[in-house]
Design a protein around this nucleic acid. Structure first.
Lengths: 181, 181
DNA sequence: TTAAAGTTTCAATAATTACTGAAACTTTAA
DNA sequence: TTAAAGTTTCAGTAATTATTGAAACTTTAA
C-alpha cells in the first residue's frame, strides 16, 4: 500500500482537518484514505499506508463505526475484513453533521431548558436567564433548520440555491403570497 | 466576584462545550461569564470568578478578540479595561460560525481546487479526483448556503421557518411561481 | 522622573489526548 | 483439538495543548 504523492497529500490534509471536524488526526486520515480508494481496504493496509500501528487502526475503525461512517465487507474465502465508506460523500457529511449536533448543541439545549424553568432569586439571575433564553431560542432555531436542510437531497438543495443570491427573496415571496390570499 | 450556583453551573457548562465549539475550556467559560453578566468585567474579576491565573485571562481575551467576540470599555477616571460581549447572542454565534468556516472548510476547498486542476496519472488518481470533486461540490454548496442564512436577521429566519415543517415546500412554492410567470 | 496600577509575554510545568506494541482474545479450517 | 490468521484491548509512553506565575512591559498621574 504505497500512496502516490497526490493522494498522500490529500490524506495528510484530511488528518490535519480531522481534529477540526470532531475526530483526531489518525481518524481523519483514515476517512480520507477510505474515501479516495475505490476498493475497500483491510486494517493492515490502512496501517501500512498511514504508517501507524495496527492497534491504532483498530481503535479508529471502532470510532468510525460509532459515527456510522464505515462499512465492513467480507470476500468469500478470505478471512480479512475490508472497510469502505458507508454511503456517498453526502451521506457521510450528513452523519458527521448530525453527530456533531448531538455533541455540540443538544447537551446545551437540555441544560438551558432546565435553567430557564428554575426561578431566578436575584437581579443577576434574572438577567442571566434572559440571556439563556436567547441562546436557547437561537440553538433551537439552528437545530430545526439543520434538520430541515438535512432532509433535502443534494439536488433539492441545489434547486433551492438557484432561487437567487439571497434567501430573503423567498421571504418576500411568501409575504406577497400571503397578502394576495 | 462570587458566582451563584446557578450561574456557575452555566459557566462551567460553557467551559465543557468550549472545546467542542472551537476554543478551549477556559475561553468557553470566559464567554459564558461575559454573556450572562449584565455589566462588563475586568480581567481581574474574570480571573477571580473562574479561579484562573491573570495571564490565562490575558491570553483568553486576546484569543476572543481575534474571534471578534469581545469589546473593551473604559470608565472615565478608571484605568482598568472592562470587557463585554461584542454584540447580541446572534452576532456572536454568527462570528463563531464564520470563523469556523474559515478554519474548517476554506483550507480544504483550496486544496481540493488545486488537486482537481492537476492531471491524474493513474486510474487510482482518476477515481481520487472524482471523489475530491464531489467533496468540493458539497463544501461549496454548504458554504454558499451558510452565507445566505447568515445574512438573515433572526426575525427573517423565524419567518422562513414558519413556512412549514419542511423546506421542500419552499421549493414547491418556487416551482409554482415560475410556472405562473 | 518615578512609582503605582495595570497589562502582556513566555518558559516551565501540568493536564490532556493520542499512539504503540505486546498480550489476550476470536474465528476458522485442517 | 490445535495452530494459524486474524482482531481487540489496554497499560505505558509519547505528543500535544493548556495553564501558571514571575518578569518585562506600558500607561498614567503626581
Amino acid at each position: 500500500m504505497q500512496l502516490s504523492p497526490k493522494i498522500e497529500n490529500f490524506v495528510l490534509h484530511c488528518g490535519e482537518m480531522g481534529s477540526r471536524w470532531g475526530f483526531n488526526r489518525t481518524i481523519g486520515q483514515m476517512v480520507g484514505l477510505l474515501v479516495i480508494n475505490e476498493k475497500p481496504l483491510t486494517a493492515n493496509e490502512i496501517a501500512e499506508a498511514l504508517k501507524i500501528s495496527r492497534g491504532n487502526v483498530s481503535m479508529g475503525i471502532k470510532e468510525l463505526q460509532s459515527w456510522q461512517l464505515v462499512k465492513v465487507h467480507h470476500i468469500p474465502g478470505d478471512r480479512k475484513e475490508y472497510y469502505s465508506p458507508n454511503g456517498s460523500i453526502w451521506d457521510l457529511a450528513n452523519r458527521v453533521f448530525e453527530e456533531r449536533r448531538k455533541r455540540e448543541i443538544d447537551p446545551t439545549l437540555t441544560l438551558l431548558r432546565d435553567q430557564i424553568l428554575d426561578s431566578a432569586n436575584s437581579p443577576e439571575e434574572k438577567y442571566a436567564q434572559e440571556q439563556m433564553q436567547s441562546i436557547h431560542d437561537l440553538l433551537e432555531t439552528v437545530t430545526k433548520w439543520s434538520a430541515e436542510l438535512q432532509r433535502l437531497t443534494p439536488e433539492q438543495l441545489q434547486s433551492l440555491m438557484k432561487l437567487g443570491s439571497s434567501v430573503s427573496k423567498v421571504i418576500d415571496l411568501k409575504d406577497k403570497l400571503l397578502r394576495k390570499s
